[in-house]
Design a protein around this nucleic acid. Structure first.
Lengths: 249, 249
DNA sequence: CGAGTAATACTCACCCTGAGAAGAACGGCG
DNA sequence: CGCCGTTCTTCTCAGGGTGAGTATTACTCG
């Protein structure tokens, strides 16, 4: 940035009133469906409407601010324990003038992936926070609907070439559980045999524990082998979505 | 975000002094090598060092701010003509405390791809702006080295599954010119025959004009067919990088 | 014990890929 | 003018990954 312009703005009197916030698209899988963490707004604007959890950035990194907001809204501990297995990544920044009617707000959106978490208890300054299926969560406050849509598209794309799906399951999991994650996020069923073959053929995606589940499925079937997440950071070859790829003009 | 926290900060006296800027990683291909637009800083901090062009966000969208900064530094017109064929996309936001020693600065980084542009003339408030090969541009002011590295990785990845490469060439181009773009960005040569086959097999990537170049290559060879960019927004199947894919643990 | 279910393995035809080579068109030079 | 090197373009071929379907086996439930 240019020095002269900087010094002009350096004087607080000349400061444009810009606020910097973080908003978090926290995704999890509960009861087989992809759900997002939302809070009900108590005051205007958009009073009574659902919104993404978020808040002002303090003297901290942007990543820390997002993690802190997530911890406050869910009532879980950030540093140790509960949220330690949450995958957090920056999504995109939204800063159109007018996206908040009160003032200029530049919001850095984050994407969080978590295994099934307990119901949020209103900790800190949180209003009522709830998990909602993403299908019913289009009508949000501010431009949060667009942010959620961007986050979902990112999540769906990242499942293809990253081991992100393991962030949605426990420390040990079966191939079928992993397949259920893909099915929930992509919204379509996958061929069990092919999925099995492909997951095991990607180096470093999963590694066997040598153990199996204690018992078979609830409606029958053999015990499944258990796996842990491997050390791969990218999946090669990737697991591509069956549809929604071609004809994207 | 929470209303109570908002109102506390709404009072300008309580405002944390946060500045919002945009920084632009502008890439082009000149003389067969990938180059980035840099400006020399005139004052402290980092006086005399090279930095990415950027500046404060005014009453405009973030995208407009990035385009404005790019126009100012290059001396080209933004809206019409010169910069109209530039592809611009948001890269990532950098906001660590201390990344600017003067105050808290949250910077939204943008990535720009342009065909070969004329040498920048110092318009507006620009210091000396120059195109530099990306290989020699590691030591930049602030955290701009990291921003450039992130931008390069994004550019290299996007060539695989998006028709971005056409943003680096003129309105009409040959397959060989497109191959030179991939070679410059990825830093490795590609098999001419296979590249040819793959580009033409991706629906909507390029469309033939029915014409050819006026004469053959400078060192011989037949006239090449000319193509225009097609209407595809994603490449399917993608053009994957030969290396740097597997064993990424 | 029988029926239904699910994990895992296997087959097969098809497509895409990398590597190599061939054919053809062209510029430069003697 | 004719040769040579260069480059565009097309073709072949073997190998690997893919989707679709099937088979086998191990379990739960009633």
């Amino acid at each position: 940035m240019d020095e002269r312009t900087f010094l002009e703005s350096y004087d607080p009197r000349n400061f444009p009133a810009v606020a910097v916030t973080v908003d978090v698209v926290a995704l999890t899988i509960r009861e087989g469906s992809l759900q997002v963490l939302l809070v009900e707004r108590g005051e205007a604007p958009f009073a009574g409407r659902l919104a993404l959890p978020g808040g002002f950035v303090k003297s901290e990194t942007l990543d820390d601010a997002a993690l802190r907001e997530l911890a406050e809204e869910t009532g879980l501990n950030a540093g140790h324990g509960d949220l330690s297995r949450v995958h957090l990544e920056q999504l995109r920044t939204y800063g159109d003038p007018g996206r908040d009617p009160r003032m200029r707000v530049v919001s850095v959106a984050y994407l969080a992936f978590a295994p099934s978490l307990p119901d949020p208890r209103a900790g800190g300054d949180a209003a009522a926070a709830v998990w909602k299926p993403v299908e019913g969560a289009e009508d949000l406050a501010f431009d949060h609907g667009r942010i959620l849509a961007d986050g979902l598209e990112r999540a769906r794309a990242k499942l293809e070439y990253s081991p992100l799906a393991t962030a949605f399951v426990g420390p040990e999991f079966t191939i079928a559980e992993l397949r259920a994650v893909y099915a929930a996020v992509w919204g379509e069923d996958l061929h069990a045999g092919n999925f099995h073959r492909k997951v095991l053929s990607v180096p470093g995606f999963v590694e066997g524990t040598g153990t199996t589940t204690a018992r078979g499925g609830e409606r029958g079937g053999p015990r499944a082998k258990l796996y842990r997440a491997g050390d791969a950071r990218v999946l090669h070859p990737p697991l591509l979505r069956p549809t929604a790829e071609e004809a994207v003009r």
